[in-house]
């Protein structure tokens, strides 16, 4: 057992437990997009779940922290919120705001996080940048919307965890990075007809079942 302090409240938990999970389980909300309960190692790519841990110079992503006894954590400090807001603004600068037409509207995790951080959906001061292709129909079973995608990679990982290897993958580099599929695969052999966890897990409605 480990006793830790989060935002002044004492919490008992397992030594080595994932700090982000501990916070969420104790109703302390920390913005996050890329964490999967089933991940063996933290993916740590959305860079939103920052917290301050005593002893660390700067904020750390809580999904990468294993709890140790007497750990002191703060989730609501100026440096934490600043990084979270910047991260969210970055994501919003590549996310087409067409909430009315989006099936994820009202269940969208980006909307929730923006509300929580009190950030508008239009990223102030940043030029928006979108992919040329709005709709990608190459996958036989799913429609992919690159300009909604936040590249959390959860779709890729649930697919891999279920089938041993993923039928989805990241493609291209830098700002052009997208989720893509291996073309030329025999559609008959893909497990996608019966298995749609990738679309279900998408936090922003970037993958839709056809």
């Amino acid at each position: 057992m480990a006793k830790i302090v989060i935002d002044g409240a004492e919490i008992e938990t397992e030594e080595g437990a994932n700090l982000l999970k501990v916070c969420l389980d104790n109703d302390i909300y920390i913005p996050n997009l890329c964490r999967l309960e089933t991940d063996e190692t933290p993916h740590a790519s959305c860079r939103l779940c920052f917290v301050e841990v005593a002893g660390y110079k700067s904020p750390v992503p809580s999904c990468t922290v294993a709890v140790t006894d007497e750990m002191v954590v703060k989730t609501d400090t100026e440096p934490v919120r600043r990084l979270q807001k910047t991260g969210l603004r970055f994501l919003l600068s590549t996310h087409k705001i067409e909430c009315k037409d989006c099936p994820a509207n009202k269940q969208c995790e980006l909307q929730d996080i923006a509300k929580f951080l009190k950030v508008g959906l239009k990223p102030k001061g940043l030029k928006q940048r979108f992919h040329e292709t709005d709709v990608d129909e190459r996958h036989p079973c799913f429609t992919y919307y690159p300009n909604r995608c936040v590249l959390c990679g959860k779709c890729i990982r649930v697919c891999r965890q279920e089938h041993g290897q993923s039928t989805l993958t990241f493609a291209r580099r830098g700002i052009d990075t997208v989720v893509s599929c291996f073309q030329g695969d025999d559609i008959e052999k893909l497990p996608c007809e019966d298995y749609r966890a990738c679309a279900a897990i998408c936090p922003v409605g970037a993958l839709e079942v056809k």
Binding site: A44, R47, F90, L126, R129, R173, G174, I175, D176, T177
Partner: peptide
């Protein structure tokens, strides 16, 4: 151009 695209700050931040 060489950013792997994984994390938000490098992928989008360097673009800005």
């Amino acid at each position: 151009k060489e950013s792997c695209g994984k994390c938000t700050f490098c992928r989008i931040g360097t673009y800005h």
